[in-house]
């Protein structure tokens, strides 16, 4: 079947010079904009007041900023983005807090073991002997938790003689006993 014939679409008559005229028009418009200006407005600097001798003070200000200790130490500090800075600061805060807690705990622990070393073995053994139900481990734990203090170590009435103590001392491995405290 023969395809239906459509009459050619009517196009407006365009002169040969149309496109070059258009191009000229666009060029003219662009040049106009390029050259656009309001008389007497190009030199705007004179309309913005600047304090007298300002340029010298600007130079001085730059030098002061460069030589400020904070700038020398951290030239890029103000370039750190704010969220990153906030994160770093909060991490530092938590690290500091954890460090303080750990240090305090360790100091307390060290203090306690230092205190324990001052208690004579005789007193300690006497105390253990005077309380048959208590284990050495239990006593040391109580001392660590603060339930027992150094003053509690005073045994008012020693019911064992020094000889008994010596015998007991022989049966107990002194090194092992101290090891227990150190391990705690």
């Amino acid at each position: 079947m023969k395809p239906e014939h459509f009459p050619p679409k009517e196009l407006p008559e365009v002169s040969d010079a149309f496109f070059s005229e258009q191009a000229d028009h666009i060029l003219k418009k662009t040049t106009e904009i390029e050259k656009w200006s309001l008389p007497g407005t190009r030199n705007i600097e004179s309309s913005f007041p600047v304090p007298e001798g300002y340029w010298l003070s600007l130079e001085q200000g730059i030098r002061n900023r460069i030589s400020s200790p904070a700038r020398v130490a951290f030239p890029d500090f103000n370039l750190i983005p704010k969220p990153a800075l906030a994160m770093v600061l909060s991490l530092l805060f938590f690290a500091g807090f954890a460090g303080m807690w750990f240090f305090q705990y360790r100091t307390k622990d060290n203090h306690w073991s230092a205190g324990l070393e001052q208690v004579s073995e005789t007193e300690l053994l006497a105390y253990v002997e005077s309380r048959p139900g208590f284990e050495v481990q239990e006593i040391t734990e109580n001392m660590a938790s603060g339930a027992l203090s150094e003053s509690d170590m005073v045994v008012p009435d020693l019911k064992i003689s020094e000889q008994d103590i010596d015998e007991n001392l022989e049966s107990i491995n002194e090194h092992e006993l101290l090891q227990n405290y150190d391990n705690y």
Binding site: P39, S47, F48, P49
Partner: peptide, 13 residues
Amino acid sequence: SDFSGDEIQKKLQ
């Protein structure tokens, strides 16, 4: 306070 230009400069700014 920060500008001392004439009227046309002001309008342009």
